[in-house]
Write a protein that binds this DNA or RNA. Sequence first.
DNA 1: ATTAATAAACAGACCAGTCGGTATGGAGGG
DNA 2: CCCTCCATACCGACTGGTCTGTTTATTAAT
Lengths: 186, 186
Amino acid sequence: MNSKSLIIDIATTLFQQKGYIGVGLNEILKACNLSKGSFYHHFPNGKEALLIACLQSMEEAIMTDIEGIFERYPTTEEATNAMISKLIVNFETEGTITGYTFSSIVSEMASLSDPVRNACAQLYQKMQDIYSNKLVEDGLSQDTANSIALMMTASIEGGMMLCLTQNATAPLSVIAKNLSYILKEF
Amino acid sequence: MNSKSLIIDIATTLFQQKGYIGVGLNEILKACNLSKGSFYHHFPNGKEALLIACLQSMEEAIMTDIEGIFERYPTTEEATNAMISKLIVNFETEGTITGYTFSSIVSEMASLSDPVRNACAQLYQKMQDIYSNKLVEDGLSQDTANSIALMMTASIEGGMMLCLTQNATAPLSVIAKNLSYILKEF
DNA sequence: ATTAATAAACAGACCAGTCGGTATGGAGGG
DNA sequence: CCCTCCATACCGACTGGTCTGTTTATTAAT
């Protein structure tokens, strides 16, 4: 793997775990076994440019993943359960949350950098669109689908936050149960 | 107001806006017109002790606020709508989110400091308890009440995150509408 | 030989936290 | 009434270290 991709890959994980401000360039580069010079060769615009590259990389990874799940299952309800189960397994094995979330980045950077804020907004929107499209397939109206898709995005994101604070996976399980209930309603 | 309370008050706002790592002691003290010496007189255990004091102060403020709303309205559904409306007005006037949320603190510190993580967990739990108690009053079983209360906490927290990224209040409105719907079901 | 890629040393700003010293105000003894 | 004593509150220069970003020099590949 070339150095640039390596930097993005490792930085993505670290940013997700510790947030943007919480990770220094030195830490990233040490994990990559690369030097400052190499970094600034590939990212002449510095750390924030790296963050945006990481967000784009996350977008690809998350989209592929979620799209896969949502194609594999016939209904939104089943796909949602599968997705949350995957998050729970991930949390149990990794100890931290490494997939689907970037809340630390949002809360740190949303008010500081518009480019970063927009990149995050786009990522949430794309996830929501997948949910929404599947809900329309399920037979819901576009408006209802959008509304429920937003509820899904928000509650899953909030659920991960609760898991983090409690250091447990129970909150996400409860969210899955509740979303199932809601999705069966329609 | 005494210096210690002043420090806590100002630091609480700054931590909510920019996160824990994002705010330096110098910035806090400059805003208070106080010196390093004064700070370490009142907080000999440093910045993290200040953060925990801020979380406790937030707990008091949020509890008073939410309890007030939940006493004033007869049903959980009405109280929830009033609470979210207040969050929306707050977001519109302040430009950022200053009340009820501390997601940046959670995502930064949950994996770094157990005392901070526990303080955050307690805060979420107390909010959830208010919702849950009211739901039991409404006639729900304890289990169902707990489950829905968690869903409320998570979706509101996630909704604020979406508002931050979109720089708009629409997501919280949609969350309110969805929660209303769910709460009417039972 | 030229150019991309990397390394290493460095600069300057900022960080949390420390330390010696100063001002204030109340208690108690003369 | 005055003076000493002492705890509390406060000040701001300073320390050791980390941060992002720059510069210069060297290596590897074409």
